[in-house]
């Protein structure tokens, strides 16, 4: 038996909204440590990795580790029926083929809605991601990151992220011209959430397909800050810290030959 209760259905809804454009079917692996999910897009360019630890839930029970294979679009249909502050309970039997989602309206305890989603058998490729030291880490407000990528995507299909000790520069070049946004490292004393934190041992410049970077911005509603971890010629690790877990992407770079 698996049963997990989230005090705010919106947390799970935002997670699923963040993956809907690139990832069709995903396995949500439930264990005594919480719920985790890892999925690669069909083109093998982006990988999403999510972990919601047990502390994220107001109650949590998982007698035996199970994998809940779910179609993201179907799951969203159900999650979108909920109010953001509904309490969500997810339940599955060990050998069942359904995930039950129960929504309780915190402002109207007389209303309870219940949905059953058919589980899928998803044959997923699993990747072994090596432990990596990143030589450049830029942490910035997620809304700023989202804005930069949205603005520059209009200029070109690929965006270069250039991290140096004193700042980070995002550049796009395309048929209509080019554009760049530079952010200087700052501390914004007293305004930690707005600061641009830069830790660079070695300057790094990596180019990415802007379509995939756009996908990694969709998680901005999940956390106020995002960190971009880079090292020469390897995938960027883009991570949003959740209250009890993380929501992250690995994105393969474009390399000049």
């Amino acid at each position: 038996m698996f049963e997990a209760k989230l005090n705010e259905a919106s947390v799970f809804k935002k997670i699923v909204e963040s993956v809907k454009d690139g990832f069709k079917n995903c396995n949500f692996d439930c264990s005594e440590e919480g719920i985790s999910m890892e999925s690669m897009d069909d083109a093998h360019i982006a990988l999403v990795s999510m972990k919601l630890g047990v502390e994220a839930f107001s109650s949590y029970r998982c007698d035996r580790s199970i994998s809940l294979g779910l179609n993201i679009e179907s799951l969203l249909k159900v999650l979108r029926t909920a109010n953001n502050n509904d309490v969500l309970t997810m339940r599955a039997e060990d050998d069942g083929d359904l995930l039950t989602l129960v929504f309780e309206d915190s402002s109207n305890p007389d209303r309870i809605s219940e949905y059953n989603l058919k589980l899928l058998n998803i044959d997923q490729e699993h990747m072994s991601i090596p432990e990596q030291e990143y030589t450049a880490t830029v942490t910035l407000p997620s809304s700023e990151y989202q804005r930069i990528i949205r603005d520059l995507t209009q200029l070109g299909d690929s965006i270069t992220i250039d991290a140096a000790k004193d700042g980070v520069r995002f550049t796009a070049e395309g048929d209509i011209g080019s554009g760049s946004v530079s952010l200087k490292a700052n501390t914004n004393v007293g305004e930690d959430e707005k600061s641009i934190d830069i830790a660079v041992e070695e300057p790094v410049a990596l180019g990415f397909n802007s379509k995939y970077l756009t996908q990694t911005c969709k998680a901005a509603p999940l956390a106020p800050r995002v960190s971009l971890n880079m090292c020469k010629r390897i995938p960027i690790f883009i991570s949003y810290k959740l209250q009890a877990g993380h929501f992250s992407f690995f994105l393969a770079p474009q390399i000049s030959e």
């Binding site: 990988l47 699993h126 690995f250 030959e257």
Partner: peptide, 14 residues
């Protein structure tokens, strides 16, 4: 010219 790499170029496929 630039080449789009794939995650498989970096990560081991289990």
């Amino acid at each position: 010219s630039t080449r789009q790499t794939l995650l498989k170029d970096f990560f081991l496929n289990l």
